[in-house]
Design a protein around this nucleic acid. Structure first.
Lengths: 244, 244
DNA sequence: ATTATCTATAGATCTATAGATAATGC
DNA sequence: ATTATCTATAGATCTATAGATAATGC
């Protein structure tokens, strides 16, 4: 079985087999690649990593999914590890930006926490790959991942800060703050474990999960609706902040 | 660098190098193995899989962790895939057994749901490895995993059943039952995403997470304490059921 | 000169099988 | 005869580099 070669007319072994329509550039005709091979590689890698795992995905599989030969991938990424690191950073960045915008807004901690959880979940649920669980691999512990882990810590600290403020103002109540932090962070990320996330609207999922976070913490559970309304307004405000 | 050979005196290349103290059996002196190599292999594999991923863990790494040479592992497991399948089944089985016991007990659905979530979390939090996220790999989609997936479906259906009963009796309230099911299942499994689970007592984690599940669903949030008390009694009853 | 691709390949794995060896239990 | 281990190895990968080739842009 001969491999499915992208055409590269000049080097073709049989000159008779040459394609008469000479292409301007020796570019493979991969479906997903189009104008930006680098981006296409990221997309393909995200999908393959999340389905088959990091070590279980070969650079060959990634390259060929975008219509390139295996070594050509290394023109865009120095190593396979670089690919994973960049994907993890891309996944978390929108949420850390949301956090930064929320921090400077003037609002109740409960609303800020709701907004953060909502945005976090929305970001994950809107992606059609599921990279979240890959961050726990030992593969993601080398120096190349320092930047990612710094972002991740920032995010955790953001959750912790809003929780702490809510406890101080007595809007929240819990038995043990340290555990509550992990419960909240865990619930927010739990969409990563859904097998049927595509069956629902990302917006709907985000509301439900953010509701769950707040119901866990609110001293007065009846305040949920008001908090949610305030939070969704905050999200819009944070988006505006971003545009400037 | 010569490999760290377990002694196997007779086949030793240099007879002069022979150990004078002949061992009764040609058994390697691996630390973890002791009396039950099969069990030791399972433990080692669970730890390595959860740290480095399935494809990222070699059969050599597993075998040598228990003091065996790589091919000796295949005396106990026909394939590497068999190892993963058995680990996943072992992880989920105690929880499906709890479910079966809860189903026949006479109690409020809220208490049964609490008990199920509590036991589920306790089971995961008590294990010192984290296999939960591995089930989502494509590796775990072959026929060998049918039994595991049947158990997993059983468990999801158990959660669904208790939720449905609670809604019928108006103990629970939610906007959309299908989403609520996934939220609940996700929260229960979310301990798999904790990076600092060892910092807390498994019992404490389980209470907090089961609380979060019930706070999400209860129509009257004030009923939580009573539900928790009833649930912990149920767990004891279910354990008794099991002993018979 | 730079960018994007390819073929070829070095060198390092990795899983599983074959077949030898030794101890144990009948 | 069965069980548990080993060494050796086949055959299939896998990542990354080297070096050729062609188009583009100065």
């Amino acid at each position: 079985m001969t491999p499915d070669k992208p055409e590269r007319s000049v080097r073709s072994t049989s000159p008779a087999a040459r394609n008469t329509t000479r292409l301007g550039r020796p570019r493979a005709s991969g479906a997903a690649k189009d104008e930006n091979p680098r981006q296409a590689i990221l997309v393909a890698a995200a999908e393959l990593f999340s389905r088959t795992g990091y070590a279980g995905t070969s650079t060959r599989a990634i390259a060929e999914q975008v219509g390139l030969r295996q070594p050509s991938m290394f023109h865009y990424f120095r190593t396979k590890e670089d690919l994973l690191a960049e994907l993890l950073e891309n996944l978390i960045t929108p949420t850390t930006e949301l956090l930064a915008n929320l921090e400077v807004l003037d609002a109740a901690p409960a609303a800020k926490l709701y907004a953060l959880a909502f945005g976090d979940v929305l970001n994950m649920a809107s992606s059609d790959t599921n990279m979240t669980t890959l961050q726990f691999l030992n593969n993601a512990r080398t120096e190349r991942f320092d930047r990612f882990w710094a972002l991740r810590t920032q995010l955790f600290d953001g959750y912790a800060q809003f929780i702490s403020q809510g406890l101080k103002s007595a809007a929240f109540a819990c038995r043990d703050e340290a555990i509550a932090r992990s419960v909240v962070f865990g619930i927010a990320d739990s969409v990563a474990l859904w097998e049927d996330a595509d069956s629902f609207e990302p917006q709907e999922i985000s509301v439900e999960v953010a509701d769950a976070v707040l119901l866990f913490l609110l001293a007065d559970k009846g305040a949920l609706e008001a908090v949610r309304t305030e939070a969704l307004a905050l999200i819009r405000a944070a988006r505006k902040e971003e545009d400037e």
